[in-house]
Design a protein around this nucleic acid. Structure first.
Length: 245
DNA sequence: AAAACCGACAACCGCCCCGTC
DNA sequence: AGACGGGGCGGTTGTCGGTTT
C-alpha cells in the first residue's frame, strides 16, 4: 500500500513559526475550527504542512495552555506516572490540565530524568539493596509522593505549590511573547470557547481583529462546518456571528 | 573576546490507530 | 474484509541562548 504523503514535501515552510503565521492560524481556527488539518493551511493562507499547523495549535496556541515552569506538584505527578506507565506522554498530559505531551516530554528529558537518575544514585549508595534501581525513577516512594487523582485545573491553579504564573513568567519567552498569559485565559471565565470575545479582556480582539478581515483567509464555505464548530466549542452562535459580520 | 560546549525547548518525522467507505 | 485517509503519539533533530574554557 502506498500512502500519499501527509504533506507536500516541497514548497512548504518549515522551522519556527512567525507571529504572523500564528495570527493566521489562530484567527482561522477560532473562526472556522480545525475541520481538516490537511486542508486547513490552504484555507488559512499558510504555507505549512497540516501536521505542523496541528502541532503548533495543540502545543502553543490553543486556549487554556499552561505555560511557564512546572510546579513541584506537577513534577511529582509526572515522575510517578512515568514510573507506572513509562513514556506515555499523552496519558501523563491528560492528568495535567493545560500541559501538553510535548512539553512534558521535553521537561522529562531535560530535567526530571536527570534528577531521578541522580536521586537513584544517592539511594543506591545509602541502600545496598538495589533491586529496584533498574527502572529509571523509583526514588519517590508512594508514602512520600502520593499520586493524586487527576487534579482539576482550578485545583492546580489555586494550589500554593502551583501558583498562577505571573506575566513575568512568560515575558522571557520571545517565541510566545505575543500570546496571552494563562491568567488572561483564566480570566475568560473558565472556558475560552464559551465566553467568546468579551469586551475589555479578550486577547484576540486587540491582536487579531485585523486578521479577521484578512483576505488571505478563506472560508471553508460550508455552513455545516460552522455548525460543527459551534457544537464543538460552544453554543453562542449569535456572539460569533455578530463578531464575524 | 571568541570558540566550544551544553541545556532547554520548538518543531519535524514516521509509525500506528481508528473511523469510514 | 481491507484499502484508505486523518489524526494522534512518541522519538528524534534542529536551533538558540547561556555558560564555560
Amino acid at each position: 500500500m502506498v500512502r500519499t504523503p501527509s504533506c507536500e514535501k516541497t514548497g512548504l515552510k518549515k522551522g519556527a513559526w512567525t507571529p504572523e503565521e500564528d495570527k493566521k492560524l489562530v484567527a482561522y481556527i477560532t473562526r472556522y475550527g480545525h475541520w481538516n488539518w490537511r486542508e486547513l493551511p490552504r484555507f488559512a493562507g499558510l504555507s505549512r504542512c497540516g501536521k505542523s499547523c496541528r502541532l503548533r495549535w495543540m502545543n502553543y496556541l490553543r486556549p487554556n495552555i499552561k505555560l511557564g515552569n512546572f510546579s513541584r506538584e506537577e513534577e511529582e505527578i509526572i515522575i510517578n506516572m512515568h514510573q507506572e506507565i513509562g513514556n506515555k506522554w499523552a496519558a501523563i498530559a491528560a492528568k495535567l490540565p493545560g500541559r501538553t505531551d510535548n512539553e512534558i516530554k521535553n521537561h522529562w528529558h531535560s530535567n526530571l530524568r536527570r534528577r531521578c537518575l541522580k536521586q537513584n544514585l544517592k539511594l543506591s549508595e545509602s541502600k545496598p539493596d538495589t533491586s529496584e534501581i533498574g527502572s529509571e525513577c523509583k526514588v519517590n516512594s508512594k508514602q512520600e509522593l502520593k499520586l493524586p487523582s487527576a487534579p482539576s485545573l482550578q485545583t492546580l491553579e489555586s494550589s500554593p505549590l502551583s501558583p498562577v504564573p505571573s506575566l513575568s513568567d512568560f515575558s522571557s519567552s520571545s517565541t510566545n511573547s505575543m500570546l496571552p498569559t494563562s491568567t488572561n485565559w483564566l480570566e475568560l471565565n473558565g472556558d475560552f470557547w464559551t465566553e467568546p470575545y468579551v469586551a475589555g479582556n479578550f486577547y484576540f480582539q486587540e491582536n487579531f481583529q485585523q486578521t479577521w478581515a484578512d483576505p488571505g483567509i478563506l472560508s471553508p464555505l460550508s455552513p455545516l462546518l460552522l455548525e460543527d464548530y459551534f457544537c464543538t466549542y460552544g453554543s453562542h452562535e449569535d456572539n460569533y456571528l455578530e463578531w464575524f459580520n
